[in-house]
């Protein structure tokens, strides 16, 4: 297995033929702020305001299937939340991962439900368990926890055994 590649320029140079990179380079080179190619998986770190544009560009480039939206809490680092998208192409048999970093001060990011309706439940789950809001989501409400629950359990500052 090849060594990990870090940095936008290095990854873009080494994988210039990759469909996702080629499409983004042609349409929105400024949207990708950093990139990583590690353990045969491509990760692109995307500017938080441009996630919808990037997703749409990838969709048009053949990445037709949204597999997953989730989040990682890097507390106490800032920007604290890393919203992660896994997007698959049935035709190319390739997967690309997008990261969006969101700060802890009113954490929010644009919803991609208008591009992939399947993001509906995933975004509700991220809102419920991490407290990251999604702008433009049609009906953002808790999905796992009860409606009146306080706090977001998967945050790192939320104790594993809960508040007693």
């Amino acid at each position: 297995m090849a060594d990990a590649l870090h940095g936008k320029d290095a990854v873009f140079e080494a994988h210039a033929q990759n469909t996702a990179i080629a499409a983004l380079r042609a349409a929105h080179p400024e949207a990708v702020t950093d990139a990583k190619f590690d353990r045969d998986e491509l990760t692109l770190i995307v500017d938080s305001g441009l996630i919808r544009t990037v997703c749409r560009t990838l969709q048009l480039a053949g990445y037709n299937f949204l597999e997953d939206v989730t989040c990682v809490d890097w507390y106490p680092l800032e920007p604290r939340f890393q919203v992660t998208y896994h997007i698959l192409s049935h035709r190319l048999k390739e997967r690309v991962r997008l990261h969006v970093r969101v700060g802890s001060d009113d954490p929010s990011v644009d919803s991609i439900t208008s591009i992939w309706p399947s993001a509906n439940y995933y975004e509700r789950e991220v809102w419920d368990l991490f407290g990251v809001r999604f702008h433009g989501h049609p009906w953002l409400r808790r999905i796992m926890m009860p409606e009146e629950w306080e706090g977001h359990p998967l945050r790192k500052d939320y104790p594993v055994e809960g508040y007693r």
Partner: peptide, 12 residues
Amino acid sequence: EFVATSTLITPR
């Protein structure tokens, strides 16, 4: 500009 595809998602 994208409009929410409400046909596939239950709105409020």
